[in-house]
Nucleic acid binder design. Sequence first.
DNA 1: TGAATAGTGTCTATAAGACAATATCCC
DNA 2: GGGATATTGTCTTATAGACACTATTCA
Lengths: 254, 254
Amino acid sequence: MRDAYKMATITDPEREFLAAYDPTVYERPSLTVDVALIRVSDDALGTLLVTREEHPDKGKAALPGGFVRMSESLDEAAQRVLREKAGLEGVFLEQLYTFGAPDRDPRTRIVTVTYFALVDGRRFDAIDRATHAVVPARIEVPWEGETGGPIDALTEGGGSLELAFDHADILGMAVKRIRGKLDYTPIGFQLLPDRFTLRQLQHVHETVLGRPLNKDSFRRRMLASTELEATGERQRDVDHRPAALYRFGRRSAV
Amino acid sequence: MRDAYKMATITDPEREFLAAYDPTVYERPSLTVDVALIRVSDDALGTLLVTREEHPDKGKAALPGGFVRMSESLDEAAQRVLREKAGLEGVFLEQLYTFGAPDRDPRTRIVTVTYFALVDGRRFDAIDRATHAVVPARIEVPWEGETGGPIDALTEGGGSLELAFDHADILGMAVKRIRGKLDYTPIGFQLLPDRFTLRQLQHVHETVLGRPLNKDSFRRRMLASTELEATGERQRDVDHRPAALYRFGRRSAV
DNA sequence: TGAATAGTGTCTATAAGACAATATCCC
DNA sequence: GGGATATTGTCTTATAGACACTATTCA
């Protein structure tokens, strides 16, 4: 601890400068990352939660998260959390928003940098629940468009699920952001396997946006967008005319 | 400090739990906010910088910023920084992105939550430079649309200005975000005084986007958008037909 | 009256929605 | 062949850009 005399005579910028060198001068918030992992399952959005084993909010469901380590970037921390908590690697991950209300965690000041991740629903189901204590959940969006606001999660059976801390707000922000990006960035692909039909892609868009889309217009837009690449293959084992399979363009020509 | 015996036998989640209670268990990053304050001046975007008086990057220009205090939210910290460094209150402020590369500050690990702020250019000029040591700067955007990337700042005279740390990246992210939001959110108003003409609003949009806009189409879009409210007043002391003055709608009907 | 910019009306090109017709698979 | 969905083509409607014309102020 510095002596009071010195603290009283140095100016504010100096104090901040010293504080940066000496972590004991000022208290500082803890820093975590939390990840909203989103998938499309049947007719609803889904996410992956972890049951809290400790107080506070013991027993409630929380987003997978963890403290940021000194040597890793924020992106790396989010990747690590996904790997440790869900065994997932190489999923699409993007920073969402940083939540820092002083009272958002009753223990102490914890600021959390949140991310959203998009993953093919099947990889979601393939997670080994014995080694990773995750809870798949359905997402219920109580607003239209990009209104925003907190979001409830339900168990896969449809039972209600209490969310810890401000995680309902984080999920709401994730859905709002994804809806906004869907129209002008190639992001829907991330929720599908490598090869997919236009119908499947439209279903993903409709589920994310929470409203039906015009089929003809959707086809035209997607085919005109240069993001899609025809594989030349078609569906197999369907009891109707098989649709062409597309893949996300490598954008090699950029 | 806890004894080594105990540290060795507790599990990882427990350790994190304890770390949250006891700030000395783990080192944690410092947390700051930095604000990219944007205005439109004549034919270019402008921002407000502060000359660094200390190492590292002494003498370089930096965004106004400061450490987050334990009792204030992130938004409040950003507001405080604007008040303390530039004497500005009540400006539009929105969280931008959180930068946390481990080596972004050579002193120690500093994670910064960045904001962008939009302000009428005239309030910018009215800042008392004697009490607030700020440097107005012009912004040079070296890419089109929403490509993104770091951005250079110039002195008002046109001389080059070296930016500290990763602040060129932060400015670039701010411009990219503002360009993206301009088309579908009422944000251009924030860069103008209370009352303004459609021409002035179009000039703001063109300066932000860095490209000319179709006058007729711009008028139609704006007048159809319900965001604008005619004041019934007109321009005065112009040597041509005076344009109608509009104001940002109170959105009372939402 | 003339210079200058504001504001209006009309035409055209482009993108979205609606709908009909045809194609291709499995049974 | 029949059921089902994919794919193509055409028509209609909404929106953006282009352009010509009229309006209003000050010098």
